[in-house]
Simulated scan of single mutants.
Amino acid sequence: MSLTFTLDPSVTPDLRDGILDLWTDVTNAGGAVGFVAPVTREAIRPELVHHFAAMADGRMRLLAGHDEEGRLAATAFFGFNTHRLKTHWAWLYTVMVHPRHQGKGYGRDLLDAAEQAARTFDGIEAIQLSCRGGLGLERFYASCGYKEVGRIPGAIRVAPDDDRDDVLMWLPLV
C-alpha cells in the first residue's frame, strides 16, 4: 500500500474538509503543525483559508497524498519567497501524515514526493522547513536528507514554561 500524490489538486469542498480533518487529527495526536492540542477544525480553518489565499495568489502550492481508499492522508504546502534575493529556494509548510498511517513510511514518501515536485519548479534550488524541537523531528528530517542549518532556542511557546527550539532544516536540490 502506498499513497498517491497530486501536486496542485483542485480545491473542492471534499479537499478542504479533508485538510481540516487531517490537520485537526494530526495536532490532536501530538503533531507539531502550528497548533497545540486540543484543537478544533474551527480553530484551524482561518489558517487553512490563509494557505488557500496564498495558493490563489501563486505564493503557495499544495502536494496532497491520498490513501488506497481515496482519503486524504498527507499534505505538504510549498511557500515561495517574494524577496528578490531568496526566490531560488522554497519553504515546506504543514507537512502532515494522518495518525492512522503513522509507521508505514508515508512521511518519508511525502518528503520524497515533495523533493521530486520541487525539482520541477523553475529556479528552485533548495527547500527549507522548520520544525519544533523536543520531538525528534530534526532526526527524521535529517534521515530524509535535510541538514540542520539553524536553531532558535525557545522560539516556540507551546504552553507556559514550555518553550521549544525552532529548528531550521535545508535540503539542496542542486
Rank of each mutant, 00 (worst) to 15 (best):
R132C: 14
T94L: 14
W170P: 10
V95I: 14
V36H: 00
A126F: 08
L7M: 14
L171R: 07
F121R: 04
A37G: 07
L168R: 13
T87V: 14
K86Y: 14
V167P: 11
D163Y: 15
G31M: 00
E125F: 06
F5N: 04
A113T: 00
K86P: 04
T12C: 01
E138S: 05
W23D: 11
G154I: 00
R61I: 12
T4G: 09
D21A: 14
E42N: 03
F35M: 01
T24S: 13
K86D: 13
R16T: 15
G30S: 08
G18E: 08
A73L: 05
A37I: 00
T12G: 11
G133N: 04
I19G: 01
D165F: 01
H51Y: 12
A43K: 14
D161V: 00
E47A: 15
G79V: 06
G18S: 00
Q116A: 15
G30Q: 05
R45K: 15
I44V: 12
L15S: 06
C131K: 10
S130T: 15
R132G: 09
W23V: 02
G31T: 03
H51F: 10
A32D: 11
Q102E: 14
P172G: 03
M1K: 08
A117F: 10
H88W: 05
Y93L: 11
G105A: 06
I124F: 11
N81L: 02
E148G: 04
I127C: 03
F52C: 01
G105E: 05
D25N: 14
G79R: 11
L110M: 11
F35K: 03
A53R: 14
R41T: 10
A53N: 10
D14F: 09
D21W: 03
Q128W: 09
L3C: 05
I152F: 14
R157P: 04
F35P: 02
T40E: 08
V11L: 15
I124A: 12
T6W: 03
R41P: 09
R59P: 01
